[in-house]
Design a protein around this nucleic acid. Sequence first.
DNA 1: CTACGCCCTCAAGCCACTTGAGGTTCAAGC
DNA 2: GCTTGAACCTCAAGTGGCTTGAGGGCGTAG
Lengths: 133, 133
Amino acid sequence: MRIGVLAKAAGVSVPTIRYYESIGLLTPPARQGGQRIYGSEDVKALSLIRHCRDLDFSLDDIGDILASLQRRLPCSDTKSFAEQHLRSIRTKIAELRALEATMVALVSGCETTCCGSTAPDCVILQPGQVTCG
Amino acid sequence: MRIGVLAKAAGVSVPTIRYYESIGLLTPPARQGGQRIYGSEDVKALSLIRHCRDLDFSLDDIGDILASLQRRLPCSDTKSFAEQHLRSIRTKIAELRALEATMVALVSGCETTCCGSTAPDCVILQPGQVTCG
DNA sequence: CTACGCCCTCAAGCCACTTGAGGTTCAAGC
DNA sequence: GCTTGAACCTCAAGTGGCTTGAGGGCGTAG
């Protein structure tokens, strides 16, 4: 199949496939008249990459995951990748929640204190006024 | 004061200050012998930018905020920037929580189903198995 | 043989910086 | 006046994960 068919089959854009090839994440396929020709394993590989991107793994991590597939490493390897990723997701959630609390405090501070004045005096823009994160 | 002093006063790195100037966020200061010389208003302006970056506003947004300061627009303008930003923070939190739930399901699925097998069969890597987001 | 869609490569753009190379200016000490 | 060292300067490239655009080649149907 040609690249456009692969793209639809795996749910990835054509330039993205070429990009993955350029960084060594996908192995370059055979060519016919200069055009890339793919097989069904390529659909599998690319679908896996897409799945991992949906889970927000980095391309670096995905490279490691693909390598562990090729070496037939045990499943526990995959799981530890996933657990580490889960920890970083939770860290990011905690940071965003702290930021959310800060923003809520600033907005309500604006409503009770300075609404009606001009921007330079707004509590939202006062450094070091309210910080929850 | 010179750029290094400003940097410490506002809690921003020296290259970052030059970068802000290059994109037009900071107005270019006077020079002495080719070196940038700043005043106390520059500390204020840069501290404000840093404050907004701490709140994770984009530099584009910060440009708009600075413009609304210069035009002495009402505080309600600032507040609506903040509210919109708060909404996008909450959207991102929701996305990350869905992702967190998916990852938890995948990891526990791995523990109960496939731990001990090799990576290619791991449920974590099966597209379309578990999706919460 | 022409039209059209799909394919190709290469380069640049996005965001918010950081890092590095290679050179200049300033302040202090001798 | 000279040297040293820190701080300054500019310009270019790298980060991540693509997307977009320019300018051209290939394949097939009419």
